[in-house]
């Protein structure tokens, strides 16, 4: 490819391949990974109790168990009380450790396969949900990122002590960027591939948005908002068009920046709010992964700035009232940190 362009001989010129590679590995602050670890590992615990919550029940009554491809490929044992209970305990323990950003890689490498298995069992009764892709991908990529240490990122897997506050670590890392990018791609793929499935479902035609699919869904999941909408099929068709067009255009969000990206994210979160109102389908495991787009690494600096401003103001008024000097010292330190 590069041989065809003899003019680009200068050293800093990057090839198209490198540009693609760089797109997959943007430099993102390690703090965003730390926040995602906390949020997503806690979310897994919620998920196990609120969404994919029948895994242990399937261990008690494995009669309806029909193993999915991955379970057959790895010859995973049939769910039993013993193995689903073990899975449950292991997941709770290591999710809590990972959420605290202690030994995050070790915890992560345990949670990823354990939760994948948990969901595999949960979906092995003939009904598969499509809201877990981004979450499962996130769990597999998070442990590839080494946490920051005093001497850069050495990433000791077994380290319990946290040398630097992971939530404030502004060290930008390509490894972190790759993990974030993978989660972002999975979130977007969930929508884009839904549109592809709709084309396929209609025999590779654009028949879906004009069909009575939402009417069908509402009749089968009766719900006050939905039942009211049943009287207005044109509204349901409009929603179907908006949905499929939005899903098709979703990949654009990967290249949007700042406010425009936020707008794209809000569109899809609105889409989920509507789905929840009409069909009671919330897709929260995907929604939570939208946080991979959010600049979470700015939370701590923002908070420190606020605190230092407030302390400064307080220090000034305290000094006026004859308070000791050390508070002013505190605020000066906080300000220096915030500026770092």
């Amino acid at each position: 490819m590069s041989a065809a362009t003899p003019t680009s001989t200068s050293a800093p010129e990057i090839s198209r391949g490198q540009r693609v590679a760089n797109w997959f590995t943007p430099k993102i602050a390690l703090a965003r990974i730390a926040w995602l670890r906390t949020i997503l590992y806690l979310f897994v615990i919620l998920d196990m109790h609120a969404f994919v919550r029948d895994t242990r029940l399937k261990g008690e009554h494995p009669g309806l168990y029909q193993p999915l491809f991955l379970a057959r490929l790895f010859e995973l044992p049939k769910p039993s009380v013993a193995n689903t209970t073990t899975l449950y305990v292991v997941l709770i323990v290591f999710c809590l450790i990972g959420a605290a950003n202690r030994m995050p890689r070790l915890a992560g490498w345990i949670v990823a396969p354990a939760f994948t298995w948990w969901v595999l069992i949960g979906m092995s009764d003939g009904k598969v949900d499509h809201d877990h892709l981004a979450l499962v991908v996130a769990l597999w990529v998070l442990p590839t990122v080494a946490p920051g240490t005093k001497h850069g990122t050495k990433g000791c897997t077994f380290q319990w002590r946290r040398e630097v506050s992971p939530y404030a670590d502004q060290t930008r890392s390509e490894a972190a960027g790759w993990a974030i990018r993978c989660v972002q791609i999975s979130v977007i793929a969930t929508y884009f591939l839904s549109a592809v499935a709709k084309l396929r479902g209609a025999g590779w035609t654009l028949g879906w948005p004009g069909s009575a699919i939402l009417t069908w869904a509402i009749v089968r999941r009766p719900h006050p908002v939905g039942e009211w909408l049943l009287q207005y099929p044109w509204m349901l068709h409009t929603m179907q068009w908006a949905g499929i067009i939005g899903e098709f255009c979703s990949p654009v969000i990967l290249w949007l920046k700042g406010r425009w990206q936020l707008l794209g994210a809000l569109f899809f979160i609105g889409f989920h709010v509507a789905n929840t109102a009409i069909l009671m389908i919330h897709f929260l495991p995907t929604v939570v992964c939208w946080l991979a787009f959010a600049p979470l690494e700015r939370i701590v600096p923002w908070f420190q700035r606020r605190r230092s401003v407030r302390r400064q103001a307080k220090g000034r008024s305290d000094r006026d009232a004859g308070e000791p000097e050390d508070q002013a010292e505190d605020s000066r330190q906080a300000k220096e940190q915030a500026g770092a």
Partner: peptide
């Protein structure tokens, strides 16, 4: 993922098609 969406079924989770509510209803 693309392979799953174009050719596979739910069996291929998590690489299967996102087929929830993707059917045609006359």
């Amino acid at each position: 993922l693309i392979n799953g969406s174009v050719r596979a079924s739910d069996d291929a989770w998590p690489f299967g098609p996102m087929s929830q509510y993707a059917g045609m209803i006359a």
